[in-house]
Simulated scan of single mutants.
Amino acid sequence: MSTTMTSLPSRPGTAAGAPQARRPTRRRSRRRESLTALGMVSPAVFLLLLFFVIPVVLAFALAFTNARLVSPTPAEFTGLQNFRTLLDDPLFYKSLRNTFYFAAVVVPLQGGLALVLALLVNAKVKGVNFFRTVYFIPVVTSMVVVSILWTLMYQKTGLVNELISQLTFGVVHGPDWLNNPSTAMPAIIFMSVWQGVGFHMVIWLAGLQTIPQDLYEAADIDGATRWVRFRYVTWPGLRTTRTFVLITITIAAFSLFAQVSVMTQGGPLDSTTTVVYQAVQTGYAQQQTGYASAISLVFFVLVLAVSLVQRFLTREKD
């Protein structure tokens, strides 16, 4: 006697129906994760659009017009007239020289000094955390506050000249630092390096702590000196870090504004006027928004070119 076996439909929860039940659940989970991620990044994207993308687009558009900050007449398209005026503006070339002079001194000086400090505070000695804090304190202080304090220190009867007089027993008397065309920019450079060196010290320090200790132990076994260890272990291990430090210092140096605005207002005799300061003064004080946008656009292209060249020179080579 034969029996006929009939297959029963699989019910939810059985092994056959489990994959079909899990697929909608996975889709809902992925959709929920995507919405959560979108909600988390949306504030940053909104701020990026509001304070970067939109201003850049407006600056590009206004650079080809005769727009003014406050004017009863609407802006008119003038083509390349602002750029022709810029090429004939002696103040622009002077501010450009001042900007490159500041960057050429600050970038290697601040980067090198920050590396030296990072090597010192990376040592495992007692009290090293105290020195890390001391070096970093100027970074968390407002640049405006720091500029005001150093303006008082740079006065003819300020602290800097008093220290010079005391150390030389009254033989040398310091100049009026910020009112002398030959000393105004060096004074701003010294203050800027002092204020920003702690930030890049922390970056160098983070890079130093990523280098494997096994390499240093192998170098010690081989009898390597400190200089040999630095040249063949530390410096190659900081390849990525030094690229980041170099680019960030360069961009910050080219965007010099707060120190000049507070301490010298571009003087004396335009010896401290920078491109950013000229653009702000042209756009707000002189209300020539179109011309200021042209200055900003040209300067943006220059800084971008310098950054790309630096990135190319510091790239990893096979």
Rank of each mutant, 00 (worst) to 15 (best):
residue 135 Y to E: 03
residue 173 H to R: 04
residue 219 A to R: 01
residue 138 P to G: 04
residue 214 D to I: 13
residue 215 L to S: 06
residue 2 S to D: 12
residue 224 A to S: 00
residue 61 A to W: 11
residue 91 L to E: 14
residue 190 F to M: 02
residue 164 I to V: 01
residue 33 E to I: 10
residue 125 V to E: 05
residue 81 Q to I: 10
residue 30 R to N: 13
residue 91 L to P: 09
residue 82 N to K: 06
residue 50 L to G: 09
residue 80 L to Y: 01
residue 47 L to Y: 06
residue 109 L to K: 00
residue 6 T to W: 11
residue 295 I to T: 12
residue 6 T to F: 15
residue 50 L to R: 03
residue 221 I to L: 00
residue 180 N to V: 12
residue 181 P to W: 12
residue 150 W to I: 08
residue 27 R to Q: 14
residue 67 A to Q: 02
residue 308 L to R: 04
residue 57 V to F: 03
residue 212 P to K: 00
residue 119 L to W: 11
residue 154 Y to D: 05
residue 194 W to T: 07
residue 209 Q to S: 13
residue 30 R to S: 12
residue 218 A to K: 08
residue 152 L to A: 10
residue 26 R to V: 13
residue 242 R to N: 12
residue 117 L to A: 15
residue 169 F to N: 03
residue 133 T to S: 06
residue 239 R to L: 07
residue 178 L to F: 14
residue 128 V to S: 03
residue 186 P to K: 02
residue 255 S to A: 09
residue 65 T to R: 00
residue 47 L to G: 04
residue 282 T to W: 03
residue 72 P to W: 15
residue 261 S to K: 08
residue 87 L to R: 14
residue 147 S to M: 11
residue 258 A to P: 11
residue 258 A to S: 07
residue 228 V to W: 00
residue 8 L to W: 13
residue 221 I to H: 06
residue 161 N to F: 12
residue 178 L to M: 06
residue 312 F to E: 05
residue 230 F to C: 02
residue 166 Q to D: 09
residue 6 T to K: 12
residue 288 Q to K: 08
residue 207 G to P: 09
residue 281 Q to G: 13
residue 124 K to N: 14
residue 206 A to L: 07
residue 309 V to A: 04
residue 138 P to W: 06
residue 123 A to P: 00
residue 57 V to A: 08
residue 288 Q to M: 09
residue 3 T to W: 08
residue 123 A to M: 15
residue 223 G to T: 02
residue 254 F to C: 01
residue 75 A to L: 05
residue 147 S to Q: 00
residue 133 T to N: 12
residue 31 R to W: 15
residue 95 S to V: 14
residue 288 Q to F: 09
residue 241 T to M: 05
residue 178 L to E: 12
residue 30 R to P: 00
residue 78 T to W: 00
residue 115 L to A: 13
residue 119 L to T: 15
residue 29 S to K: 14
residue 81 Q to A: 04
residue 213 Q to M: 11
residue 106 V to L: 04
residue 293 S to L: 02
residue 133 T to I: 14
residue 35 L to M: 13
residue 89 D to G: 06
residue 2 S to V: 13
residue 234 T to Y: 10
residue 158 G to C: 08
residue 166 Q to M: 14
residue 112 G to Q: 05
